[in-house]
């Protein structure tokens, strides 16, 4: 069975805001979490409504995103989409944690530095 994951992107990171993302990564996984396909869709403009429409059209199962408004969160939940929101950091890190079943909503995965020094 194919599992579809979507991650709205901001450069290499998970987009801090769901409604402001203009780039969306869609990953198709087959049984055993093997990546079947990976595609990036560029949206003409940032819009939470358009993004929700896209998620439904693509029959997405899991959404990994940054800040999302309650209205859209509840709508997508109602549409049976599994949501990991308030995630910050590189999308690859978030995805690999999800694969290992270690991703939780609100995970801040970025490297932390102050004035160039890791903290």
């Amino acid at each position: 069975m194919i599992h579809k994951i979507t991650i709205p992107l901001y450069h290499e990171e998970v987009a801090p805001r769901f409604d402001l993302a203009t780039e969306v990564l869609i990953i198709l996984l087959s049984k055993g979490n093997i990546i079947e396909e990976k595609k990036t869709i560029v949206l003409p403009r940032p819009s939470a409504d358009d993004l929700c429409h896209l998620l439904l059209a693509e029959t997405i199962n899991t959404l990994i995103c940054g800040a999302i408004e309650e209205e859209y969160y509840q709508f997508l939940k109602w549409k049976k989409i599994d949501i990991y929101d308030s995630i910050a950091g590189k999308w690859s890190t978030a995805f690999s944690r999800w694969e290992k079943n270690k991703l939780n909503p609100g995970d801040l995965l970025s490297e932390r530095t102050i004035e160039g020094t890791y903290v």
Binding site: Y10, P16, R17, L20, A88, R112, I114
Partner: peptide, 19 residues
């Protein structure tokens, strides 16, 4: 504790931060 050392746009999450 949560925000220390993080990029501000991941904490403030404002429209102006992105746009």
């Amino acid at each position: 504790t949560m925000a220390y050392g993080m990029k501000c746009y991941n904490i403030l999450r404002g429209t102006a931060c992105i746009a």
